[in-house]
Write a protein that binds this DNA or RNA. Structure first.
Lengths: 222, 222
DNA sequence: ACAACAATGTAGACTATGACAACAAAGATG
DNA sequence: CATCTTTGTTGTCATAGTCTACATTGTTGT
C-alpha cells in the first residue's frame, strides 16, 4: 500500500517537482533529524503503551516516514531499545543531579532527595526504567549504554563520598557502599513497577529504606 | 506444511487405525497434558534464549502439536507469560522455604540463607525473574499471579516475625520491615540481571545488604 | 450402549512485524 | 559540476499472533 504511487523512472508520478504543492504538505525527502524524532515518539509510546507495543513500522508511520527508514538509524529493534535505555540513564542521571543540588549542601537531605527523585522517575517512566534494567541476559551490553548507566550511578557515588567526608557514613570503598544504596532504591522501584507495592506505599517505603541505610551506616561494623 | 497429509473425510489417509504403526510414532490426537508440556518447554527456552524469543508457534512445533493448539490453554501470548511468572513465584517461594528450613532454627543464618537462595534463583533464571517483575504497567494483574507473589513474600514475612520474636529485629509492622528487606534483595537481583554488577561481586553485595539490614534493625530508631 | 455435549487439536486465513535488498533522491565534497 | 555518501522509499520474505471453521476424542446422562 504505497502512500504515493511509486514514482519510477517510467512513471515520474505527477512530476511533483518544485511547483506542485497543492495536493500534499510536501514533506521533504530527507526528514532532517529522523533519529531524534523516532526516539521522541518512541519514548511517548513507551510511556503510554509499554515496550512490547513498540513497533518500528508504527513509529515510522507516526513520524511520517516510510517503513524502511528507521533502519538507517537503528540496525534493528533492539538497537532502538538500547538507545532508549541509554537516553533513560542519561536523563535519570540529570534528574538525580539536579535533585541533589536542589536539596542544599547537607548530606542527609541530599540523600533523601536523590532517593525521591529516583522513585519519581520510576513512577513516571516505569516502562522505560524496566527497559533500562532489562538485562536481556544479552552477551553484548553496548558500551554506550553501560557508560550512561555508570554515569548515573556516579551521581550516587559522589553523594556517598560526601557522606563519608562528613562522617555520616563509615569509611570503605564508596562503590561497595553505593551498591547497597543503589540496590535498595532500585529494588523499591522494582517493587513499584511490578505492582507489588502501590503508589501510596511509596513514600513510606522510600523513607524506611533511606532510614535503614543511614542507621546501618552509623552503627559499629558487625 | 501439514506434518501428516490432512486426513479429510474423502481421503481418510492410510486409515491409520489401530494397526498401521510402522510409518510414524503415531502421536495420539490428544496430547494428554499439553499445558504442562508447553510450560516446561517455555521455561527451557526462556532460560536459554530469553522472553523475547518465546513464540507460541515455535513452542507448538517443539512439543509436536499444531500451531493453534496452545490457544486452548493460553488465551494469548501474555497469558502464557503470566503463567510462567506465576510458576516462577511459586518455585521461588518453595526455594526460599527450603533454604530457610535447611539453615537451622536461628534467625540470622536463615536470613542469609534466604537472601542467598533468592540471588541464586536470579542467577539461574534471570529471564524468568525479569518476567516475574515485569510490571507490564498493565492495569490487570491476574489474581493468581499476585497471589503467588504474595505467597513468596510470605516466606520473608514469616522470617521477619521470627526475628522480631527473638528480639533481633525491632517491633513494627512486619510487612513494612519485610518490604525493605525484599526491596534490597530484589534490587541486588535487578542489578545482577541488568549486568550492572558481575556475578563475582554478588556474594559480597548480598553479605553487605544483609549486614546493613541487620545493623539498622538493631540500632535505635531515628 | 449410545447419543448429545464439552474439551482439545487441526487447518487455513488474515494482518502485522522485523529484516533485507534494490533503487531513488538529496547533500557533501572535490 | 561530477562523484560519492547519506538518507528515504518500495517491494519482498519469513514468521508471529490471532481468529474461525472444522475434526477428533473424552465425558456424561439416560
Amino acid at each position: 500500500m504505497p502512500v504515493r504511487a511509486a514514482p519510477t523512472a517510467e512513471h515520474p508520478g505527477e512530476s511533483e517537482g518544485k511547483n506542485a504543492r497543492a495536493t500534499t504538505p510536501e514533506r521533504p525527502y530527507h526528514h532532517g533529524n529522523l533519529r531524534t524524532a523516532l526516539l521522541e515518539q518512541a519514548e511517548r509510546t513507551l510511556r503510554e503503551r509499554g515496550a512490547q507495543e513498540l513497533s518500528l513500522r508504527e513509529l515510522a508511520r507516526e513520524v511520517g516516514v516510510s517503513h524502511g527508514a528507521p533502519r538507517r538509524h537503528f540496525a534493528d529493534r533492539q538497537a532502538l531499545l538500547d538507545a532508549l535505555a541509554q537516553a533513560g540513564f542519561e536523563r535519570l542521571g540529570e534528574q538525580l543531579s539536579t535533585a541533589a543540588e536542589g536539596a542544599g549542601e547537607d548530606f542527609e537531605p541530599r540523600l533523601r532527595a536523590i532517593a525521591s527523585a529516583y522513585v519519581r522517575f520510576a513512577t513516571r517512566d516505569a516502562a522505560l526504567l524496566e527497559l533500562m534494567f532489562a538485562g536481556k541476559h544479552r552477551e553484548q551490553v553496548p558500551g554506550a549504554l553501560h557508560e550512561a548507566a555508570e554515569h548515573a550511578f556516579g551521581v550516587m557515588l559522589a553523594l556517598i563520598e560526601q557522606g563519608q567526608r562528613e562522617g555520616a557514613l563509615q569509611d570503605g570503598e564508596p562503590e561497595r557502599v553505593g551498591l547497597v544504596l543503589f540496590a535498595t532504591i532500585q529494588g523499591i522501584a522494582s517493587l513499584l513497577t511490578s505492582g507489588l507495592v502501590r503508589e501510596d506505599q511509596l513514600d513510606e517505603l522510600v523513607a524506611d529504606g533511606v532510614a535503614y541505610f543511614l542507621r546501618a551506616s552509623r552503627s559499629p561494623t558487625g
